[in-house]
Design a protein around this nucleic acid. Structure first.
Lengths: 197, 197, 197, 197
DNA sequence: CATGAATGAGCATTCATTCAT
DNA sequence: AATGAATGAATGCTCATTCAT
């Protein structure tokens, strides 16, 4: 009985989160309201407040959901590979592919990260992740492994990680029409591999 | 006479824009309201509507102001140099330096770009700049010059430009405490120069 | 259950409409605001927006309510009579009586009709009624019936209808103290009957 | 010198009044603001406040201007005639003609009469004219003259005056497309003359 | 578990008016 | 005589949240 209720509750929460993602993509964080999310999910406003403690809580849960989704996709591609070089290549390829394939998710994530703030007004994008940002740490691990196995040369993992992450994020803003994903992917991987070898 | 009035109006507009930047930095785009900007500037709410046609107009003008400020700072550093290599180095150094020195401006700019949307809900960060983003085109010009003078080797300017821009933007989010600006600056420049030569 | 909720909502809507009528009568359309209506109804401003989609919607619903009220009163008097002559007499008597007895309603109706405009600024008083103004059509029907039964003579129903309607409307503005309703009623009926026979 | 100033001032006042009439016609009393009138007149907002003591004062002056214009037009037609019958015919014809020809004036007048209220909220349309409404008194005079000369029969001038006035006012709302002015004019005059003879 | 009703605060905007110049 | 700058109040409206049912 309790399981059933929990199951229903969990399904509702996901339904609400998915509606939130859709609304975030369509009209952006600023215009997104609980009322609009409720309308999109075809439920009453009050129900959101029942399942989440407030707007902030819903946004946090949506963010977690989005980060997990992305992490799972990328990780699934990476763990299939053996060498650090292959893993790094897979990481970059998967990251770019995810952005193209799951555009709604990607935009919703941006909307939350760059708009939400903690109650004391610290922006999420400047927040120190206590438990290190998931995706970064995946990348960090790959770089570390490559250096330990002496596949990669000597470089600051933090710097290279930032460059790679930046190259991935920035691409999204340029892809619109100036840049083909395929060309970018190939060139970027070539360059990164050249740097770290 | 007319000049004086225009002067007063122009001063007011700048005062309001500066108050907007401050508020944007402090509480973020979502929480920023005309009332709070007015309070920060110690003027009445109505006066903002008198000098700007609305909130959107104020935000657009603030964005233009911020982009111009950054462009002027970077450009001043770049035009002093002769060779493309020197110019590129100066561009990266200046870009990183500006972010560190003018943090309020930088955050306000992020807040607007990642939160504002056009009336039909297109996010600014996905907007095609008709007149090519100023800063990008400055970088684009440097890269082009370097290739024409055969200082630089053969590469896609669009890809390299995206990587450089991404490396600069991303750094801001990592600097907080994990990464020293100095180390990042030196390493990044070294890497970029290696890539394009 | 659902009926009960609908009932509550319907009661609220009528409560709000009645408050609107009161305020319209007291201070006129121009000064009437949702805040003042809410205060009169002892509810919060937001509740009005919850039950009506906006000020325009509330005014339209209030107008419909007023037109219906008047139509019902007059129709109740008219359908009791058999001949067209009796019906016409009843129509005029009832119209004049309604204006005297329900002054608040009458003024509120005038306030809306002569002050509200469609979003493209067409005044309501110049609006073409697609479904023919109710009251006019009631009068039109009586006149048509009288001509068909040859109770009345030959005349343009549109012209006569306009004259009767004008005589009723105009009276309201003159009754104040210059004219007794009784005298006007008797004389007007006598004249109209003379014209159309 | 003083004459010149007064002359300029008088011209300005008329310019402002004419702009007010135009705006009233276009967007209605409710949406009409001093700012919009100023814009239409291509002057500054403050200038209106300089020439009129406030919005109410401007509206009162505009109303007076409109009433005078109409009275002059109708009176010019009436005084040319000798007999009361001719005068009454001329009065009705002129009244209807004025409404058709000077539609902007007519609408502006309606907008003011049915929207403006005294500071204690009495609507203008219910106001007792101390100095008897100009137009009514013109009509009243004609009726009185006709009875004194025994051109007209015995009837209550107040009732007949109200009917005539109502028939004229109401026509405006029906003319839109259901009723030809010519037909209405002829029929109305015929009917009225029949009544009073 | 879910709803619809309700609140009160906050929003951007417009307004009539004032005033120094 | 005329302007543009400025105010403060009021407008319609939306919001996140609460609560009885």
């Amino acid at each position: 009985m309790e399981d059933k209720q929990t199951f229903i509750a969990e399904a509702r929460r996901e339904q609400i989160i998915k509606a939130a993602i859709e609304v975030l993509k369509e009209i952006g964080y600023v215009s997104t309201s609980l009322a609009k999310i409720a309308k999109k999910a075809n439920i009453s406003t009050g129900l959101i407040s029942y399942h989440f403690s407030g707007k902030e809580d819903l946004m946090n849960n949506t963010l977690m959901y989005l980060v997990e989704q992305e992490w799972e996709f990328i990780n699934k591609c990476v763990i299939q590979k053996q060498t650090a070089t292959e893993k790094l290549t897979a990481f970059i390829e998967a990251s770019l592919a995810y952005q193209v394939t799951n555009k709604a998710n990607n935009i919703a994530l941006i909307e939350i990260v760059f708009n939400a703030r903690t109650p004391d007004h610290t922006p999420y994008y400047l927040l120190e992740d206590e438990e290190e940002d998931l995706k970064t740490s995946l990348l960090g691990e790959i770089l570390r492994q490559g250096q330990e196995s002496e596949e990669f040369g000597d470089f600051s993992p933090q710097v290279i990680s930032t460059i790679i992450q930046g190259a991935i994020s920035e691409s999204m803003l340029t892809f619109q029409n100036k840049l083909s994903v395929e060309e970018y992917k190939e060139t970027l991987i070539k360059i990164i591999l050249r740097i770290i070898n």
